[in-house]
Design a protein around this nucleic acid. Structure first.
Lengths: 103, 103
DNA sequence: TTAATATATGAACAATTATTCAAATGAAAA
DNA sequence: TTTTCATTTGAATAATTGTTCATATATTAA
C-alpha cells in the first residue's frame, strides 16, 4: 500500500488536458511551425514554403494548433496571418530544447 | 518568397528530437507517472496502484520514459525504484500545467 | 460576370501507439 | 530444490493520427 497523501495528483481532467497539450507539441511539423512563428507572423503559404509542406497539410496542422490555443490569426483579404498565441508557447518549446541539447 | 534569414529554424534532427520528447509527455498514463514521481521515488507496483493500471502497462510506459531520459531507477532485490531523472521534467510539466490552468 | 489565388475541409490510407494477455526473467523465501 | 513475488518482454489488437488528394469556400483581379 502506498501513502497516497504524499502524492499531489491532479484530476483526471487536468492530466488529460496537459497530455493533450504536449501531444500537440509532439509532432515535427507543428514544432517547425511554432519555430517559424517565434519571430514573425506568417501566412499559410509562407509556412508551407518554409517547412517544405503543402498548404493543405499546414492548414490541417494550424487547425490543431489553433484548437490548443497555441496560435492565433488575423485575416487580411484572402491572406490569413498566424502568430503564436502567448509567451508560454515559446517557454515550453525552450524547456524542451534545453532538455534535448544538454543530454 | 519568405525572408528565411529572419527564421531561426533548428536542424531537422533537433526538431525531431524535441518533438519526440514532447510526444513522451503527450500521454495521460505517462503524465500520471511523472506526477506520482514528483515527490517520491516509487516502485512499479506502487505506480500501478496509484494510477489504477496493470504493472505490465506501467512497465511498458516506464521503458519509454527511461529511453527519453525522463526517469532513472535503482534496484533493491527484486524491487525496482523509479524516480525523475532531473528537474527539467518537473519544469516542463509545470509549464504545461500553467498553460492549461490559466486559459 | 469569370478566372485566379489563398485557405480550409472531408475522406481515405498508411503508420504509429497504448493496452492486454501470456509468458519469461530474476530474486527472495520456504 | 521449488514456490512466490516483482518486473519485464513480445505479440496481438484496437484506436489514433499525419499526409495526400480532391473539392469547397472566400476574396480579389480581370
Amino acid at each position: 500500500m502506498v501513502n497516497q497523501s504524499k502524492i499531489d495528483m491532479p484530476s483526471d481532467e487536468i492530466i488529460f488536458d496537459i497530455a493533450e497539450l504536449f501531444k500537440v507539441f509532439g509532432d515535427s511539423t507543428r514544432m517547425r511551425i511554432i519555430c517559424a512563428l517565434r519571430e514573425n507572423e506568417l501566412c499559410v503559404g509562407d509556412i508551407a514554403e518554409i517547412t517544405n509542406m503543402t498548404a493543405s497539410a499546414i492548414s490541417h496542422q494550424l487547425r490543431i494548433l489553433k484548437q490548443a490555443k497555441l496560435v492565433k490569426y488575423r485575416k487580411e483579404g484572402k491572406i490569413v496571418y498566424y502568430s503564436l498565441d502567448d509567451d508560454h508557447v515559446v517557454q515550453i518549446f525552450n524547456k524542451g530544447r534545453e532538455h534535448i541539447e544538454e543530454v
